[in-house]
Design a protein around this nucleic acid. Structure first.
Lengths: 211, 211
DNA sequence: CCTTTCAGTGAACATCTGTACACCGACAAC
DNA sequence: GTTGTCGGTGTACAGATGTTCACTGAAAGG
Protein backbone atom coordinates (compact mmCIF):
# COMPACT_ATOMS: atom_id res chain seq x y z
CA UNK A 1 0.00 0.00 0.00
CA UNK A 2 1.16 3.48 -0.80
CA UNK A 3 1.03 5.89 2.05
CA UNK A 4 -1.20 8.62 0.67
CA UNK A 5 -0.82 10.69 3.76
CA UNK A 6 -4.34 9.86 4.88
CA UNK A 7 -4.44 11.32 8.36
CA UNK A 8 -6.49 9.59 11.07
CA UNK A 9 -8.89 12.57 11.01
CA UNK A 10 -11.12 13.29 13.95
CA UNK A 11 -14.87 13.30 13.66
CA UNK A 12 -15.02 17.09 13.64
CA UNK A 13 -12.51 17.21 10.82
CA UNK A 14 -14.53 14.76 8.77
CA UNK A 15 -17.66 16.78 9.26
CA UNK A 16 -15.88 19.93 8.18
CA UNK A 17 -14.63 18.16 5.11
CA UNK A 18 -18.06 17.11 3.87
CA UNK A 19 -19.33 20.57 4.70
CA UNK A 20 -16.64 21.96 2.45
CA UNK A 21 -17.54 19.39 -0.20
CA UNK A 22 -21.16 20.55 -0.06
CA UNK A 23 -20.16 24.18 -0.44
CA UNK A 24 -17.86 23.37 -3.35
CA UNK A 25 -20.41 21.15 -5.04
CA UNK A 26 -23.00 23.89 -4.77
CA UNK A 27 -20.71 26.49 -6.29
CA UNK A 28 -19.93 24.13 -9.13
CA UNK A 29 -23.50 23.08 -9.81
CA UNK A 30 -24.85 26.61 -9.79
CA UNK A 31 -22.36 28.06 -12.28
CA UNK A 32 -25.26 28.38 -14.64
CA UNK A 33 -28.82 28.91 -13.47
CA UNK A 34 -29.06 29.78 -9.78
CA UNK A 35 -29.54 28.51 -6.26
CA UNK A 36 -33.31 28.59 -6.66
CA UNK A 37 -33.00 26.09 -9.52
CA UNK A 38 -30.75 23.79 -7.54
CA UNK A 39 -32.08 20.74 -5.74
CA UNK A 40 -30.82 19.29 -2.51
CA UNK A 41 -30.54 15.91 -4.21
CA UNK A 42 -28.31 17.20 -7.00
CA UNK A 43 -25.95 18.60 -4.41
CA UNK A 44 -25.97 15.37 -2.43
CA UNK A 45 -25.27 13.31 -5.52
CA UNK A 46 -22.39 15.57 -6.51
CA UNK A 47 -20.91 15.33 -3.03
CA UNK A 48 -21.39 11.59 -2.93
CA UNK A 49 -23.63 11.46 0.11
CA UNK A 50 -27.21 10.38 0.51
CA UNK A 51 -29.80 13.21 0.33
CA UNK A 52 -30.73 13.01 3.98
CA UNK A 53 -27.13 13.48 5.08
CA UNK A 54 -27.38 17.01 3.73
CA UNK A 55 -29.50 17.96 6.73
CA UNK A 56 -26.63 17.23 9.09
CA UNK A 57 -24.97 20.38 7.73
CA UNK A 58 -27.67 22.76 6.51
CA UNK A 59 -31.40 22.72 6.92
CA UNK A 60 -32.15 24.04 3.47
CA UNK A 61 -30.57 25.19 0.23
CA UNK A 62 -31.32 28.70 1.37
CA UNK A 63 -29.21 28.53 4.52
CA UNK A 64 -26.49 26.89 2.47
CA UNK A 65 -26.71 30.01 0.29
CA UNK A 66 -26.24 32.28 3.28
CA UNK A 67 -23.08 30.41 4.20
CA UNK A 68 -21.81 30.87 0.66
CA UNK A 69 -22.54 34.58 0.82
CA UNK A 70 -20.25 34.94 3.82
CA UNK A 71 -17.56 32.90 2.16
CA UNK A 72 -17.82 34.77 -1.12
CA UNK A 73 -17.54 38.13 0.54
CA UNK A 74 -14.37 37.03 2.23
CA UNK A 75 -12.99 36.80 -1.30
CA UNK A 76 -14.34 40.23 -2.11
CA UNK A 77 -12.79 41.72 0.99
CA UNK A 78 -9.50 40.16 -0.03
CA UNK A 79 -9.86 42.06 -3.27
CA UNK A 80 -10.46 45.29 -1.40
CA UNK A 81 -7.39 44.70 0.70
CA UNK A 82 -5.27 44.26 -2.41
CA UNK A 83 -6.70 47.37 -4.02
CA UNK A 84 -5.76 49.31 -0.94
CA UNK A 85 -2.30 47.82 -0.93
CA UNK A 86 -1.77 48.68 -4.58
CA UNK A 87 -2.97 52.21 -3.90
CA UNK A 88 -0.47 52.67 -1.10
CA UNK A 89 2.33 51.37 -3.25
CA UNK A 90 3.62 53.48 -6.12
CA UNK A 91 1.13 51.93 -8.57
CA UNK A 92 -1.30 54.00 -10.59
CA UNK A 93 -4.59 53.84 -8.72
CA UNK A 94 -6.68 52.87 -11.73
CA UNK A 95 -4.33 50.24 -13.11
CA UNK A 96 -3.56 48.88 -9.67
CA UNK A 97 -7.23 48.44 -8.85
CA UNK A 98 -8.06 46.83 -12.15
CA UNK A 99 -5.13 44.45 -11.84
CA UNK A 100 -6.32 43.38 -8.43
CA UNK A 101 -9.88 42.97 -9.69
CA UNK A 102 -8.90 40.80 -12.64
CA UNK A 103 -6.60 38.73 -10.51
CA UNK A 104 -9.20 38.02 -7.84
CA UNK A 105 -11.98 37.31 -10.29
CA UNK A 106 -9.77 34.73 -11.96
CA UNK A 107 -8.79 33.16 -8.72
CA UNK A 108 -12.29 32.95 -7.28
CA UNK A 109 -14.42 32.77 -10.37
CA UNK A 110 -16.90 30.69 -8.39
CA UNK A 111 -17.35 33.24 -5.60
CA UNK A 112 -17.70 36.26 -7.83
CA UNK A 113 -20.06 34.39 -10.13
CA UNK A 114 -22.10 33.32 -7.14
CA UNK A 115 -22.49 36.88 -5.90
CA UNK A 116 -23.35 38.19 -9.36
CA UNK A 117 -26.07 35.59 -9.83
CA UNK A 118 -27.66 35.35 -6.42
CA UNK A 119 -27.60 39.10 -5.98
CA UNK A 120 -30.53 39.34 -8.38
CA UNK A 121 -31.83 35.80 -8.78
CA UNK A 122 -31.28 34.07 -5.46
CA UNK A 123 -33.73 33.42 -2.63
CA UNK A 124 -34.92 36.59 -0.96
CA UNK A 125 -32.84 36.17 2.20
CA UNK A 126 -29.73 35.56 0.12
CA UNK A 127 -30.40 38.63 -1.99
CA UNK A 128 -30.81 40.70 1.14
CA UNK A 129 -27.64 39.34 2.70
CA UNK A 130 -25.67 40.20 -0.43
CA UNK A 131 -27.21 43.67 -0.64
CA UNK A 132 -26.18 44.23 2.97
CA UNK A 133 -22.61 43.06 2.39
CA UNK A 134 -22.27 45.31 -0.63
CA UNK A 135 -23.50 48.19 1.47
CA UNK A 136 -20.72 47.46 3.95
CA UNK A 137 -18.19 47.38 1.13
CA UNK A 138 -19.37 50.76 -0.08
CA UNK A 139 -18.98 52.24 3.38
CA UNK A 140 -15.54 50.75 3.72
CA UNK A 141 -14.46 52.16 0.39
CA UNK A 142 -15.93 55.55 1.30
CA UNK A 143 -13.66 55.82 4.32
CA UNK A 144 -10.71 54.94 2.11
CA UNK A 145 -11.67 57.59 -0.41
CA UNK A 146 -11.79 60.15 2.37
CA UNK A 147 -8.05 59.68 2.77
CA UNK A 148 -7.40 60.30 -0.91
CA UNK A 149 -5.90 63.62 -1.91
CA UNK A 150 -8.44 66.04 -3.29
CA UNK A 151 -11.39 64.81 -1.27
CA UNK A 152 -10.73 66.85 1.86
CA UNK A 153 -13.61 69.23 1.15
CA UNK A 154 -16.05 66.47 0.26
CA UNK A 155 -19.15 65.78 2.30
CA UNK A 156 -19.63 62.32 3.74
CA UNK A 157 -22.61 61.90 1.49
CA UNK A 158 -20.67 62.64 -1.67
CA UNK A 159 -17.97 60.24 -0.60
CA UNK A 160 -20.52 57.50 -0.28
CA UNK A 161 -22.07 58.40 -3.62
CA UNK A 162 -18.72 58.09 -5.32
CA UNK A 163 -17.92 54.89 -3.49
CA UNK A 164 -21.20 53.41 -4.63
CA UNK A 165 -20.40 54.32 -8.22
CA UNK A 166 -17.02 52.62 -7.99
CA UNK A 167 -18.59 49.50 -6.58
CA UNK A 168 -21.19 49.51 -9.34
CA UNK A 169 -18.50 49.68 -12.00
CA UNK A 170 -16.48 47.04 -10.18
CA UNK A 171 -19.41 44.64 -10.01
CA UNK A 172 -20.32 45.23 -13.65
CA UNK A 173 -16.75 44.65 -14.74
CA UNK A 174 -16.51 41.45 -12.74
CA UNK A 175 -19.71 40.25 -14.38
CA UNK A 176 -18.31 40.97 -17.82
CA UNK A 177 -15.03 39.21 -17.11
CA UNK A 178 -16.98 36.23 -15.84
CA UNK A 179 -19.08 36.04 -18.97
CA UNK A 180 -16.13 35.51 -21.26
CA UNK A 181 -13.32 33.01 -21.56
CA UNK A 182 -11.56 34.52 -24.55
CA UNK A 183 -8.45 36.42 -23.39
CA UNK A 184 -8.61 39.06 -26.11
CA UNK A 185 -12.18 39.87 -25.18
CA UNK A 186 -11.14 40.18 -21.56
CA UNK A 187 -8.36 42.54 -22.57
CA UNK A 188 -11.00 44.60 -24.34
CA UNK A 189 -13.14 44.73 -21.22
CA UNK A 190 -10.18 45.75 -19.10
CA UNK A 191 -9.17 48.49 -21.54
CA UNK A 192 -12.72 49.80 -21.52
CA UNK A 193 -13.08 50.00 -17.76
CA UNK A 194 -9.65 51.59 -17.60
CA UNK A 195 -10.80 54.45 -19.78
CA UNK A 196 -14.08 54.68 -17.93
CA UNK A 197 -12.35 55.09 -14.59
CA UNK A 198 -10.02 57.72 -16.05
CA UNK A 199 -12.96 59.70 -17.40
CA UNK A 200 -14.60 59.46 -14.03
CA UNK A 201 -11.46 60.46 -12.14
CA UNK A 202 -11.22 63.70 -14.09
CA UNK A 203 -14.67 64.56 -12.83
CA UNK A 204 -13.73 63.56 -9.31
CA UNK A 205 -10.68 65.81 -9.21
CA UNK A 206 -12.80 68.77 -10.21
CA UNK A 207 -15.71 68.02 -7.92
CA UNK A 208 -16.58 70.37 -5.10
CA UNK A 209 -19.29 69.30 -2.69
CA UNK A 210 -22.12 71.72 -2.20
CA UNK A 211 -22.92 72.87 1.31
CA UNK B 1 -77.48 37.84 -20.09
CA UNK B 2 -75.32 40.88 -19.82
CA UNK B 3 -73.48 41.81 -22.92
CA UNK B 4 -69.90 41.87 -21.71
CA UNK B 5 -68.64 42.97 -25.06
CA UNK B 6 -67.25 39.54 -25.75
CA UNK B 7 -66.22 39.77 -29.38
CA UNK B 8 -66.62 36.72 -31.62
CA UNK B 9 -62.80 36.49 -31.82
CA UNK B 10 -61.15 34.59 -34.61
CA UNK B 11 -59.00 31.56 -33.99
CA UNK B 12 -55.81 33.52 -34.57
CA UNK B 13 -56.91 36.13 -32.05
CA UNK B 14 -57.62 33.47 -29.47
CA UNK B 15 -54.22 31.94 -29.96
CA UNK B 16 -52.55 35.29 -29.58
CA UNK B 17 -54.48 35.85 -26.39
CA UNK B 18 -53.31 32.68 -24.69
CA UNK B 19 -49.79 33.38 -25.94
CA UNK B 20 -50.00 36.74 -24.18
CA UNK B 21 -51.37 35.03 -21.10
CA UNK B 22 -48.39 32.67 -21.09
CA UNK B 23 -45.94 35.54 -21.40
CA UNK B 24 -47.66 37.47 -18.62
CA UNK B 25 -47.89 34.44 -16.36
CA UNK B 26 -44.19 33.77 -16.84
CA UNK B 27 -43.24 37.33 -15.98
CA UNK B 28 -45.38 37.15 -12.87
CA UNK B 29 -44.15 33.75 -11.70
CA UNK B 30 -40.50 34.57 -12.20
CA UNK B 31 -40.48 37.83 -10.22
CA UNK B 32 -38.36 36.05 -7.69
CA UNK B 33 -36.02 33.22 -8.59
CA UNK B 34 -35.52 32.88 -12.33
CA UNK B 35 -36.61 31.20 -15.54
CA UNK B 36 -34.37 28.24 -14.82
CA UNK B 37 -36.32 27.59 -11.64
CA UNK B 38 -39.66 27.83 -13.41
CA UNK B 39 -41.55 24.78 -14.56
CA UNK B 40 -43.74 24.46 -17.59
CA UNK B 41 -46.49 23.13 -15.39
CA UNK B 42 -46.47 26.13 -13.07
CA UNK B 43 -46.89 28.40 -16.06
CA UNK B 44 -49.70 26.27 -17.47
CA UNK B 45 -51.53 26.26 -14.15
CA UNK B 46 -51.21 30.03 -13.80
CA UNK B 47 -52.55 30.54 -17.33
CA UNK B 48 -55.36 28.07 -16.78
CA UNK B 49 -54.46 25.63 -19.50
CA UNK B 50 -53.37 22.03 -19.39
CA UNK B 51 -49.57 21.48 -19.45
CA UNK B 52 -49.48 19.97 -22.92
CA UNK B 53 -51.24 23.00 -24.41
CA UNK B 54 -48.10 24.97 -23.65
CA UNK B 55 -46.37 23.26 -26.56
CA UNK B 56 -48.80 24.82 -29.01
CA UNK B 57 -47.06 28.12 -28.36
CA UNK B 58 -43.47 27.43 -27.30
CA UNK B 59 -41.43 24.29 -27.36
CA UNK B 60 -39.62 24.96 -24.11
CA UNK B 61 -39.28 27.44 -21.27
CA UNK B 62 -36.08 28.54 -22.91
CA UNK B 63 -37.69 29.64 -26.17
CA UNK B 64 -40.38 31.34 -24.13
CA UNK B 65 -37.53 33.22 -22.50
CA UNK B 66 -36.19 34.35 -25.84
CA UNK B 67 -39.59 35.76 -26.72
CA UNK B 68 -39.63 37.65 -23.43
CA UNK B 69 -36.19 39.06 -24.15
CA UNK B 70 -37.46 40.62 -27.35
CA UNK B 71 -40.51 41.97 -25.63
CA UNK B 72 -38.56 43.35 -22.69
CA UNK B 73 -36.11 45.15 -24.90
CA UNK B 74 -38.96 46.84 -26.68
CA UNK B 75 -39.61 48.44 -23.30
CA UNK B 76 -35.98 49.36 -22.97
CA UNK B 77 -35.92 50.92 -26.40
CA UNK B 78 -38.97 52.93 -25.43
CA UNK B 79 -36.92 54.24 -22.53
CA UNK B 80 -34.12 55.20 -24.87
CA UNK B 81 -36.53 57.02 -27.11
CA UNK B 82 -37.82 59.03 -24.17
CA UNK B 83 -34.33 59.85 -22.99
CA UNK B 84 -33.56 61.16 -26.44
CA UNK B 85 -36.75 63.19 -26.50
CA UNK B 86 -36.01 64.70 -23.11
CA UNK B 87 -32.51 65.55 -24.27
CA UNK B 88 -33.81 67.37 -27.31
CA UNK B 89 -36.30 69.31 -25.22
CA UNK B 90 -35.07 72.00 -22.87
CA UNK B 91 -34.69 69.54 -19.99
CA UNK B 92 -31.43 69.04 -18.16
CA UNK B 93 -29.86 65.95 -19.68
CA UNK B 94 -29.18 64.23 -16.36
CA UNK B 95 -32.55 64.92 -14.77
CA UNK B 96 -34.39 64.21 -17.98
CA UNK B 97 -32.73 60.84 -18.39
CA UNK B 98 -33.28 59.83 -14.80
CA UNK B 99 -36.92 60.86 -14.95
CA UNK B 100 -37.41 58.72 -18.01
CA UNK B 101 -35.62 55.81 -16.38
CA UNK B 102 -37.68 55.91 -13.21
CA UNK B 103 -40.87 56.29 -15.16
CA UNK B 104 -40.21 53.33 -17.42
CA UNK B 105 -38.99 51.07 -14.65
CA UNK B 106 -42.20 51.74 -12.77
CA UNK B 107 -44.34 51.14 -15.79
CA UNK B 108 -42.64 47.93 -16.84
CA UNK B 109 -41.29 46.58 -13.60
CA UNK B 110 -41.77 43.09 -14.96
CA UNK B 111 -39.68 43.64 -18.09
CA UNK B 112 -36.82 45.39 -16.37
CA UNK B 113 -36.77 42.82 -13.60
CA UNK B 114 -36.77 40.07 -16.17
CA UNK B 115 -33.74 41.49 -17.95
CA UNK B 116 -31.89 42.08 -14.69
CA UNK B 117 -32.42 38.51 -13.54
CA UNK B 118 -32.03 36.50 -16.69
CA UNK B 119 -29.04 38.54 -17.76
CA UNK B 120 -26.96 36.69 -15.20
CA UNK B 121 -29.07 33.74 -14.09
CA UNK B 122 -31.11 32.69 -17.11
CA UNK B 123 -30.49 29.83 -19.55
CA UNK B 124 -27.37 30.32 -21.61
CA UNK B 125 -29.17 31.24 -24.83
CA UNK B 126 -31.25 33.81 -22.97
CA UNK B 127 -28.17 35.32 -21.37
CA UNK B 128 -26.52 35.58 -24.74
CA UNK B 129 -29.57 37.16 -26.32
CA UNK B 130 -29.69 39.78 -23.58
CA UNK B 131 -25.98 40.45 -23.83
CA UNK B 132 -26.44 41.00 -27.55
CA UNK B 133 -29.35 43.36 -27.11
CA UNK B 134 -27.46 45.41 -24.55
CA UNK B 135 -24.59 45.62 -27.00
CA UNK B 136 -26.99 47.08 -29.55
CA UNK B 137 -28.23 49.59 -26.99
CA UNK B 138 -24.70 50.69 -26.28
CA UNK B 139 -24.03 51.23 -29.97
CA UNK B 140 -27.24 53.17 -30.35
CA UNK B 141 -26.40 55.38 -27.41
CA UNK B 142 -22.89 55.89 -28.76
CA UNK B 143 -24.22 57.39 -31.98
CA UNK B 144 -26.42 59.69 -29.93
CA UNK B 145 -23.50 60.78 -27.81
CA UNK B 146 -21.58 61.63 -30.97
CA UNK B 147 -24.13 64.36 -31.62
CA UNK B 148 -23.67 65.87 -28.17
CA UNK B 149 -21.74 69.11 -27.92
CA UNK B 150 -18.18 68.59 -26.74
CA UNK B 151 -17.68 65.15 -28.23
CA UNK B 152 -16.67 66.27 -31.72
CA UNK B 153 -13.03 65.37 -31.15
CA UNK B 154 -13.80 62.00 -29.60
CA UNK B 155 -12.80 58.73 -31.21
CA UNK B 156 -15.49 56.19 -31.98
CA UNK B 157 -13.91 53.92 -29.43
CA UNK B 158 -14.13 56.45 -26.63
CA UNK B 159 -17.72 57.15 -27.51
CA UNK B 160 -18.54 53.49 -27.11
CA UNK B 161 -16.61 53.30 -23.86
CA UNK B 162 -18.63 56.16 -22.44
CA UNK B 163 -21.86 54.73 -23.78
CA UNK B 164 -21.09 51.43 -22.10
CA UNK B 165 -20.49 53.20 -18.81
CA UNK B 166 -23.81 54.99 -19.06
CA UNK B 167 -25.60 51.73 -19.76
CA UNK B 168 -23.86 50.09 -16.81
CA UNK B 169 -25.03 52.84 -14.48
CA UNK B 170 -28.48 52.72 -16.00
CA UNK B 171 -28.79 48.98 -15.47
CA UNK B 172 -27.47 49.18 -11.94
CA UNK B 173 -29.88 51.97 -11.10
CA UNK B 174 -32.80 50.06 -12.54
CA UNK B 175 -31.82 47.06 -10.42
CA UNK B 176 -31.73 49.18 -7.29
CA UNK B 177 -35.08 50.78 -8.00
CA UNK B 178 -36.53 47.32 -8.56
CA UNK B 179 -35.20 46.04 -5.28
CA UNK B 180 -37.11 48.55 -3.18
CA UNK B 181 -40.72 49.52 -2.73
CA UNK B 182 -40.21 52.30 -0.21
CA UNK B 183 -40.54 55.68 -1.95
CA UNK B 184 -38.05 57.47 0.29
CA UNK B 185 -35.44 54.85 -0.45
CA UNK B 186 -36.10 55.24 -4.14
CA UNK B 187 -35.67 58.99 -3.82
CA UNK B 188 -32.33 58.27 -2.19
CA UNK B 189 -31.28 56.06 -5.10
CA UNK B 190 -32.32 58.68 -7.61
CA UNK B 191 -30.44 61.43 -5.77
CA UNK B 192 -27.35 59.26 -5.69
CA UNK B 193 -27.33 58.43 -9.37
CA UNK B 194 -28.00 62.08 -10.12
CA UNK B 195 -24.83 63.09 -8.36
CA UNK B 196 -22.92 60.22 -9.92
CA UNK B 197 -23.87 61.30 -13.42
CA UNK B 198 -22.93 64.89 -12.66
CA UNK B 199 -19.52 63.83 -11.40
CA UNK B 200 -19.09 61.77 -14.52
CA UNK B 201 -20.22 64.57 -16.83
CA UNK B 202 -17.53 66.87 -15.49
CA UNK B 203 -14.99 64.31 -16.59
CA UNK B 204 -16.67 63.92 -19.94
CA UNK B 205 -16.57 67.64 -20.70
CA UNK B 206 -12.85 67.72 -20.03
CA UNK B 207 -12.01 64.53 -21.88
CA UNK B 208 -9.83 64.64 -24.97
CA UNK B 209 -9.39 61.43 -26.92
CA UNK B 210 -5.83 60.36 -27.56
CA UNK B 211 -4.75 59.75 -31.12
C1' DC C 1 -14.72 -1.25 28.95
C1' DC C 2 -19.10 0.33 28.26
C1' DT C 3 -22.11 3.95 26.76
C1' DT C 4 -23.31 7.93 24.20
C1' DT C 5 -23.04 10.77 20.27
C1' DC C 6 -23.80 11.61 15.60
C1' DA C 7 -22.39 11.73 10.39
C1' DG C 8 -24.01 9.01 7.08
C1' DT C 9 -27.43 5.11 5.30
C1' DG C 10 -31.52 3.25 2.86
C1' DA C 11 -36.25 2.59 2.25
C1' DA C 12 -40.56 4.83 1.81
C1' DC C 13 -43.90 8.61 0.98
C1' DA C 14 -46.60 12.05 -1.56
C1' DT C 15 -45.93 15.39 -4.84
C1' DC C 16 -44.13 17.51 -8.88
C1' DT C 17 -41.64 17.28 -13.20
C1' DG C 18 -41.41 16.98 -18.79
C1' DT C 19 -43.35 14.71 -22.50
C1' DA C 20 -45.99 11.16 -25.42
C1' DC C 21 -50.38 9.91 -27.10
C1' DA C 22 -55.11 9.72 -28.59
C1' DC C 23 -58.79 12.57 -28.57
C1' DC C 24 -62.30 16.55 -29.09
C1' DG C 25 -64.81 20.33 -31.15
C1' DA C 26 -65.02 24.82 -33.03
C1' DC C 27 -63.44 27.56 -36.57
C1' DA C 28 -61.64 27.93 -41.61
C1' DA C 29 -61.47 26.73 -46.34
C1' DC C 30 -63.34 24.78 -50.12
C1' DG D 1 -72.08 21.17 -46.19
C1' DT D 2 -68.27 18.57 -46.03
C1' DT D 3 -63.61 18.34 -44.71
C1' DG D 4 -59.33 19.68 -42.61
C1' DT D 5 -56.86 22.41 -39.41
C1' DC D 6 -55.41 23.09 -34.91
C1' DG D 7 -55.96 25.03 -29.86
C1' DG D 8 -56.90 22.75 -26.08
C1' DT D 9 -58.11 18.31 -23.16
C1' DG D 10 -57.19 14.06 -20.35
C1' DT D 11 -54.64 10.13 -19.37
C1' DA D 12 -50.50 8.04 -18.60
C1' DC D 13 -45.66 7.21 -17.30
C1' DA D 14 -40.97 7.28 -15.77
C1' DG D 15 -38.21 10.00 -13.24
C1' DA D 16 -36.97 13.72 -9.83
C1' DT D 17 -38.13 16.26 -5.76
C1' DG D 18 -38.23 17.36 -0.26
C1' DT D 19 -38.78 15.13 3.99
C1' DT D 20 -39.91 11.27 7.39
C1' DC D 21 -38.12 7.56 9.95
C1' DA D 22 -35.62 3.82 11.92
C1' DC D 23 -31.00 2.17 11.27
C1' DT D 24 -25.69 1.57 11.62
C1' DG D 25 -21.06 1.82 13.01
C1' DA D 26 -17.21 4.20 14.31
C1' DA D 27 -15.30 7.81 17.07
C1' DA D 28 -15.68 10.36 21.74
C1' DG D 29 -16.27 10.40 26.61
C1' DG D 30 -16.95 8.37 30.97
Amino acid sequence: MIETGAEPESRAERKLRTRRAILDATLELSTDSSLTALSLRQVAKQVGIVPTAFYRHFDSIESLGLALVEESFDSLRDLFRDVRRNAQADKDIVDGSIDALVDHVHRRRDHFGFIARERVAGPRSVREAIRHEIELCERELATDLALMSGTDTWTAKDLHVLSSLFVTVLVATAEQILSTTRPEQEAQIVATVRTQLRMLLIGVYQWRSEA
